[in-house]
Simulated assay, not measured.
Amino acid sequence: MSAQKPTIVLVHGAFADSSSWNGVIERLQSHDYPVVAASNPLRGLATDSTYVRQLVASIDGPVVLAGHSYGGSVISNAATGLDNVKALVFVAAFLPDEGESAVALSGKFPGSTLGETLQPVAVTQPGGVEVVDLYIDRSKFPQQFAADVPEGTAAVMAATQRPVADAALAEGASAPAWRNVPSWVLVATEDRNIPARAQTFMAERARATVVNVSASHAVSVARPGEVARLIDEAARATS
């Protein structure tokens, strides 16, 4: 049965990992969708997009590509020119136009309190290249990222968060796939990372199908049924 349906490729964003999609994956698999949760490197927009692009290109048959947060920037870059990507789903995510960065878009409208919660850590990569990794302060993570997630779950998410290189959030996007690929957007109305007004602005600019959900930035954890429902809608509409 799964061969009759598109493969759903899920791309997490900054300060998260693929387990943030677990509840969504369970629901999609119960409806016989093949699902792949990509491990987003979070090193740089161009390199992260290339990684996801190569993964998607290796999949036989149609693909619905979904991204959360910074993962939205990644899927929009990665899908450009890939004929097997039939739909894009942005979940509390960035939909940058060419040259725009996550940093610029998150500050385009008031409401984001992410900056004051970040902890920078300088690290040296192989070859001696120095970068700055960003974490959310673990004590502030639940309120900032996952205010509607059970306390114990949010604490685990804070401990297992994956850092993003600061340069990745400041890097400008390439030509966006949402200009040519049908797109769906879930706006998390209680988001403290990407203000709902910014999410709505980007969705309207992309002429996307939009659903508003009362949820924090961690909507895929707090409201996995709503996220899975929107992905299913996108898959059905493009089949």
Rank of each mutant, 00 (worst) to 15 (best):
S2V: 02
S2I: 01
S2R: 05
S2K: 04
S2Q: 07
S2T: 08
A3P: 14
A3K: 07
A3W: 02
Q4L: 07
Q4R: 04
Q4H: 06
Q4Y: 03
Q4G: 10
Q4E: 12
Q4N: 13
K5F: 00
K5H: 03
P6V: 00
P6N: 02
T7R: 07
T7L: 03
T7W: 09
T7F: 09
I8N: 04
I8H: 08
I8R: 03
I8W: 08
V9T: 08
V9D: 10
V9P: 14
L10E: 11
L10K: 06
L10G: 14
L10I: 08
V11I: 11
G13E: 12
A14M: 05
A14I: 10
F15K: 07
F15C: 12
A16F: 09
A16L: 06
A16I: 12
A16D: 08
A16R: 00
D17A: 11
D17Y: 03
D17C: 12
D17P: 15
S18L: 06
S19C: 11
S19G: 13
S19P: 11
S20I: 14
S20C: 14
S20H: 14
W21S: 14
W21V: 15
N22G: 13
N22A: 14
G23N: 05
G23V: 13
G23C: 04
V24C: 03
V24T: 14
V24W: 03
I25D: 06
I25N: 05
E26S: 13
E26T: 14
E26N: 13
E26C: 02
R27F: 10
L28C: 11
L28A: 07
L28M: 06
L28K: 05
Q29M: 01
S30G: 06
S30Y: 05
S30K: 04
S30E: 06
S30D: 12
H31R: 06
H31M: 02
H31I: 02
H31K: 11
D32P: 01
D32W: 00
Y33L: 01
Y33G: 04
Y33E: 01
Y33A: 01
Y33N: 02
Y33R: 01
Y33K: 01
P34L: 00
P34K: 05
P34G: 09
P34M: 02
V35G: 08
V35Q: 05
V35T: 09
V35E: 03
A37K: 05
A37D: 12
A37G: 15
A38Q: 06
A38P: 15
S39M: 04
S39T: 15
S39F: 01
S39R: 09
N40A: 02
P41T: 03
P41V: 02
P41L: 00
P41W: 00
L42P: 15
L42Q: 14
L42D: 15
R43M: 11
G44R: 07
L45R: 11
L45C: 10
L45W: 10
A46G: 05
A46S: 12
A46C: 04
T47W: 10
T47K: 09
D48F: 02
D48P: 09
D48K: 02
S49R: 01
T50S: 13
Y51M: 00
Y51I: 01
Y51L: 00
Y51N: 08
V52T: 10
V52D: 08
R53K: 11
R53N: 12
Q54E: 14
Q54K: 09
L55D: 04
V56G: 08
V56S: 05
A57G: 11
A57I: 07
A57C: 07
A57V: 10
